[in-house]
Amino acid sequence: MDHATIGYEYTDGSADPHIGANATVRAGTIIYDDVVIGDGFSTGHYALVRELTEIGDDVLVGTNAVIDGRTTIGSGTSLQTGVYVPSETTIGDHVFVGPHAVLTNDPYPVREDTELRGPTIENHASIGANATVLPDVTVGERSFVAAGSVVVDDVPPETLAIGAPAEHRSLPEAVPRRNDL
């Protein structure tokens, strides 16, 4: 944890973060106060975890990934290099989010009076590299979002979302599911 900031105070009276056993926090990483992280946590370099975030066990937050706070991330989840997770997002257990995928939470970014509504990524879902998931969208359990796709509406469980805007298709039989690996 050399050259990392653990316990970045964002407001007076914020509580020190809790990081479980066997963590690897690499140089340049900043973890704010009021963060609770389970055992086996690992980051790449320059990861950012903002306040009021809860992270389960055995989670990877890749190099230059940003978790913008007020977020819940389940156990066994992998956020690859450059992933952006906005506030008010829920990510389940055993989720894979590929490099530079972007989750969004503001349905009307130029308006000041909008309520932020991050997406929900359910257990065992997989999101490909450079995909974008729009606000208040649910990616169902065991679903796949193809690389580069733009997800504008809910993805049912065990479904492939592909394209921009993403169309929903049946999963190919040849695709191994995460729990089968």
Rank of each mutant, 00 (worst) to 15 (best):
M1D: 14
H3L: 15
H3V: 07
T5C: 12
T5S: 12
T5D: 13
G7Q: 05
Y8M: 12
Y8R: 05
E9F: 00
E9M: 14
Y10M: 10
G13T: 09
S14A: 15
A15R: 12
A15F: 01
P17V: 09
G20T: 11
A21I: 09
N22A: 15
T24R: 14
R26M: 15
R26S: 14
R26I: 09
I31T: 10
D34Y: 02
V36M: 07
I37R: 10
G44L: 09
V49H: 06
V49K: 04
R50N: 13
I55V: 15
I55D: 12
G56L: 10
G56W: 07
G56C: 11
G62W: 02
T63K: 06
T63N: 13
N64E: 12
N64C: 07
N64Q: 13
N64T: 12
G69H: 03
S75P: 01
S75I: 10
G76I: 06
T77E: 09
S78P: 00
S78H: 15
S78A: 15
Q80V: 02
Q80P: 00
T81K: 01
G82R: 06
G82I: 12
V83C: 10
V83L: 07
V85R: 07
V85Q: 11
S87N: 14
E88S: 13
E88V: 06
T89D: 07
T90K: 09
I91C: 10
I91D: 12
G92M: 03
V95W: 04
V95Q: 08
F96N: 13
F96V: 12
G98N: 01
P99Q: 10
H100E: 10
A101S: 09
A101R: 03
V102C: 05
V102R: 02
N105T: 08
D106Y: 03
P107A: 09
P107E: 12
P107L: 05
Y108T: 14
P109C: 05
P109D: 10
P109W: 03
V110K: 06
V110A: 05
E112I: 06
D113C: 05
E115P: 00
E115N: 02
L116T: 03
R117H: 03
G118R: 01
I121A: 13
S126V: 06
S126T: 11
N130S: 11
T132S: 14
T132Q: 07
L134R: 09
L134E: 11
P135E: 10
P135T: 10
P135M: 07
P135A: 11
V137A: 11
E141C: 01
E141H: 04
E141P: 00
R142T: 11
S143M: 07
V151T: 14
V152H: 05
D153I: 01
D153P: 00
D154K: 01
P156F: 04
P156T: 06
P156Q: 02
P157F: 03
E158N: 12
L160W: 02
L160T: 06
L160P: 01
G163F: 03
A164Q: 06
A164G: 02
H168F: 08
S170A: 15
P172K: 02
E173H: 00
E173N: 03
A174D: 10
R177P: 00
N179R: 02
N179W: 07
D180N: 03
D180P: 00
